[in-house]
Amino acid sequence: MNEDVHQGVDEDHPEKRGTPVGRRVFLGTLALGAAGVVAAPPLQRGLEGFLGSAADKDPTGLTGLLPNGGGFRYYSVASSVPRKNADSYRLTVDGLVDRPTTYTLADLRALPQTRLVRDVQCVTGWRVPDTPFEGVRLSRLLDAARVRPTAKAIRFTCFDGTYTESLTLAQARRADVLVALRMQDKDLGHSHGGPVRLYVAPMYFYKSAKWLSGITVTDEVRPGYWEERGYDVDAWVGRSNGRDDEPTS
């Protein structure tokens, strides 16, 4: 207990115990953290601007790993996701319809394509501005399947085997809801949910289910994967999940 005596730190004589720098560093770190929370909005805007321009000139892609470094982030709820290509991919439309249908990738590509350019907003905070999505309007596939009058909602299933999503029939018929085949003017890659994903422009991005494989028309909304874990079913950007982001559509 009597270490450091010769250099002036003596625990038996409080006036000689030395300065409590440790406590000051500890409390200072806490205060800095609190100040960081308070000062975050302007700091974040500044950093996003700086990192955004740095990322444009960064061939290594390392800036993408920094917080708010811009761009998409990969979220998967399954342990591994099988890959599907033009040969193996199928999209089924069934449930409360008169004409259940199965589409191949070529079938979907042969239908009229719609291109939308909107911001993508994730419920965890990141936003990717002006992202083009291109594909078939969901309403077109629903009309082709002849939805029965008792139908109220759609359930989406995915070939990752785990993820599910839902929309009301009215939401699904909106013109800005696509079965997307292309993103950023490229065919959808596997890590972005390719070859085919849902794109629900006005809602938080968890509604835009990746690796879409099934569209089932139902008589009630069945909450999807994240919705069973606390997220809002009606996920309008800026008007749900307790967030006030600028609307995307």
Binding site: V21, G22, R24, F26, L27
Partner: peptide, 26 residues
């Protein structure tokens, strides 16, 4: 010169304790 802990170890311990609580709070 250092006692049982050197100045670097002291700073590390105090900072990390504070930082851990900030992570917990946020």
């Amino acid at each position: 010169p250092a006692g049982k802990f050197n100045a670097g170890q002291k700073l590390y311990a105090s900072w990390l304790a504070g930082a851990t609580l900030v992570m917990l709070g946020t």
